[in-house]
Design a protein around this nucleic acid. Structure first.
Length: 387
DNA sequence: TCTGGGGTCCTAGGACCC
DNA sequence: TCTGGGGTCCTAGGACCC
């Protein structure tokens, strides 16, 4: 880590918990420390407590089903498995790895403590997931390095867990920096560091360059961030469009003016399920109806619990060949009720050709508004209606 | 015995309106 | 009477992220 002579005009920290779900589990089961362990699937393979108080853990080889790994410890990653990998495939690579079910309640509790700890150092934060946040530390006293150390100490005290911190003049570089020294690292990155420390890295490392864009870049002979930076911006725009091409050029140079978003309202809420085996629209009609109703009930419960209504309802299907279709519909009036939701979603379902076996079914509520705050109640909007 | 679940944002064509 | 042009909403799909 280098010394930063002066504080940046804007000073943004990105704080990223290390192997978060796995680390939460290790707090509960410290005897698993140092062993390969993965988190995946449901409670069917939860640890069983023996009469002597010790735990019996499932192994990855015992896994059955269509799930993917939610996370893996660094020891498991060394065996070639990683989050997002189909669990059955991971089981062939690391059959003896300990298998734990996903326990979201636990992770949410740790997440809350983690975010409160960051706020105690710097109150302006942007929440970007269960295990990471941005903090604007421009107004916090001390060097960037000292601030990063304080953030880590606060998080460690509140959670007992480690995180990696990047500090940079903007969100893009802060996020990039936090990934440079994982786990338990601190990385300071100034704009001047970009040519030496960012440009040699693979293009895929930029948050916003995914598998598709990366493959397209590769096909054009571009592998590193520096090679993007060396491109004529007009050429990038010609190949990637005005918006994305322009962004690629700026991002490759470490330019990012996005402000922190400290408050946001949800846009949609959805539930979906992948069946253990593909279901046939006619033969498995009852099972499909049951699952469909259940999804609607869950979405309705989510809306009610969080105090929202929806003015759009949509469905999603994935077939055995992995093709995915969606249908949605804007409603005349906002809904929260499960029966009404189910009726509207059913209308969407009628517009899909159900010849192929169905792998996944989903229901989504969109165009959310706070319950009791319909736009029609807004006097300003009402007044404009007379125009 | 490939490929989860919950999100956000963008694009693009057509409808519709002024 | 030969083709406007901008704005917004609706819908479907897709890229990307955690």
């Amino acid at each position: 880590m280098q010394d930063v002579p002066a504080r940046f005009p804007r000073c943004i920290a990105h704080i990223d918990m290390d192997a978060f779900f796995a680390s939460c589990e290790l707090s509960r089961y410290p005897e698993l420390r140092g062993r390969p362990m993965v988190v995946a699937g449901r409670d069917t393979h939860a640890p069983r407590r023996q009469t002597d108080g010790t735990w019996v853990f499932s192994r990855l080889r015992d896994y059955v089903g269509r799930g993917v790994l939610t996370t893996a410890t660094y020891e498991a990653r060394a065996l070639g498995v990683h989050s997002g990998m189909p669990a059955m495939k991971a089981a062939r690579l690391a059959p003896d790895a300990v298998l734990l079910p996903v326990h979201f309640e636990l992770y949410r509790r740790y997440s809350q403590r983690f975010k409160d700890a960051v706020r105690s150092v710097s109150p302006v934060i942007e929440d970007i997931g269960i295990d990471e946040v941005y903090a604007d530390v421009s107004a916090v006293a001390g060097s960037a390095e000292a601030i990063a150390r304080r953030l880590k100490a606060a998080v460690a005290e509140a959670t007992g867990l480690t995180c990696s911190v990047g500090v940079a003049p903007n969100k893009l570089l802060a996020k990039f920096a936090s990934d440079m020294d994982k786990p338990d690292g601190v990385t300071l990155l100034a704009l001047d560091d970009v040519p030496l420390r960012v440009w040699p890295m693979p293009a895929r490392k930029i948050n916003g360059i995914g598998p598709k864009a990366n493959a397209k870049l590769a096909a054009l002979g571009i592998a590193t961030i520096g090679e993007i930076a060396a491109c004529d911006p007009a050429w990038l725009v010609a190949h990637f469009g005005r918006s994305y091409g322009g962004w690629l050029h700026r991002a490759s140079r470490g330019v990012d003016e996005r402000p922190l978003v400290t408050h946001s309202e949800p846009v949609s809420m959805s539930r979906e399920t992948t069946f253990e085996r593909d279901l046939h629209a006619v033969r498995d009609r009852d099972a499909l109806r049951c699952a469909f109703t259940q999804l609607c009930v869950q979405v309705a419960a989510d809306l009610q619990r969080k105090g929202y209504q929806c003015r759009r309802i949509g469905i999603k299907l994935r077939f055995d060949d992995f093709t995915t279709v969606t249908r949605d519909r804007t409603l005349d009036a906002a809904l929260v009720d499960a029966r009404a939701l189910r009726r509207a979603a059913g209308e969407c379902l009628k517009r899909v050709d159900l010849a192929r076996p169905i792998r996944l079914l989903g229901v989504k509520a969109g165009a959310l508004q706070r319950a009791g705050c319909a736009p029609d109640d807004d006097p300003l909007q009402f007044a404009l209606g007379f125009d």
